[in-house]
Design a protein around this nucleic acid. Structure first.
Length: 297
DNA sequence: AAGGCAAACAACCGCCGTCGA
DNA sequence: GTCGACGGCGGTTGTTTGCCT
């Protein structure tokens, strides 16, 4: 179903750059009355603009919480990481960067980061049909799985290091949503980027839009590692009585085994994709995953 | 100094999803 | 269930700015 343009062009509404006077009218009106209906706003505020133009001007430029100025290295890094995960979902990326607008991030990506990555030989996969190819979808699914796995590891690590039981992280191993809730409960300030991501709108969006693949049960390759991790995790003092401790042991063991499955399977997928994007992969090399296990425990 | 060019950024356009009548 | 209004989003375009020759 098509729809009529939001602005009646026959009325000679002004287009193009905004003047300081127009900005002032818009800011004054919104600060006094809120924006209400954007369609009615221009008339009420005395502006000869269409409502859509007013909304864009406000959200992208005039809003008081907008942070202007150059992107910090941390912000750049976040944008690259988030773009690798969610693609051109600028609003989702902007939601993770307080004070930055989707338009600003989009422009910054197109004018700076895209070129930087290209120069570094980290070009994007070709746009168009390839984006919907099975390999790309497969990759997105695995990224979802990896995020959850990393988040679980983060939660386990934070729970262990704080002396708390790992129960919170593990009782919900079969449920992403309860896991996310558990993660939030376990730490008001999530431990790292993966946990923050998983607890964020992005993680939520993944959980809703991209169902994690139904994992076949792959053979656990690095059994020694799992055993070692289990032993170390289980050696931690578990508060509560003995029966709950036994239950905790099982849950911890299950969670760790599940995480190991993620790692092993992702590692295999890494090998599959590693050369595809010039060595730039969403999946960290297996050694890095192993290192993260080492540092976490 | 002037013209050409590319980079950067603001703003527009059109599509989509949601909501209420 | 259908339709229209609305806001949001991503892609694209237009304008400005700065650099180079």
């Amino acid at each position: 179903m098509g729809r009529a343009p939001c602005c009646d062009r026959t009325k000679g509404l002004k287009k193009g750059p905004w003047t300081p006077e127009e900005d002032k009218l818009l800011v004054d009106y919104i600060q006094a009355n809120g924006h209400g209906s954007w369609r009615l706003l221009p008339k009420l505020a005395g502006l000869n603009r269409c409502g859509k133009s007013c909304r864009l001007r406000w959200t992208n430029y005039l809003r008081p919480d907008i942070k202007r100025g150059p992107f910090s290295p941390e912000e750049q890094k976040s944008i690259v990481q988030l773009h690798a995960i969610v693609g051109n979902k600028w609003s989702m990326i902007a939601a993770q960067l307080p004070g930055r607008t989707d338009n600003e991030i989009k422009n910054y990506w197109n004018t700076h980061l895209k070129k930087q990555l290209r120069r570094m030989g980290l070009d994007e996969p070709p746009p168009g049909p390839a984006a919907g190819c099975p390999a790309a979808r497969h990759m997105a699914q695995w990224e979802t799985a990896r995020l959850e796995a990393e988040a679980r590891l983060s939660l386990l690590a934070s729970s262990c290091s704080s002396g708390a039981t790992a129960t919170t992280a593990t009782t919900s191993a079969s449920s992403s949503s309860t896991f996310a809730a558990g993660a939030e409960k376990a730490s008001s300030k999530p431990a790292d980027i993966f946990l923050r991501l998983w607890s964020s709108d992005i993680g939520d969006s993944f959980r809703r839009k991209t169902a994690a693949p139904a994992l076949p049960a792959p053979p656990v390759k690095r059994k020694d590692d799992v055993v070692m991790i289990k032993q170390e995790a289980l050696a931690l003092p578990a508060p509560g009585d003995d029966s709950s401790a036994a239950s905790n042991e099982t849950e911890v063991a299950e969670a760790l085994e599940e995480y190991q499955m993620f790692l092993d399977f992702a590692g295999e997928e890494l090998g599959l994709f590693h050369g595809r994007y010039g060595g730039f992969s969403l999946f960290p090399p297996l050694e890095v995953l192993e290192a993260s296990l080492d540092t976490a425990f």
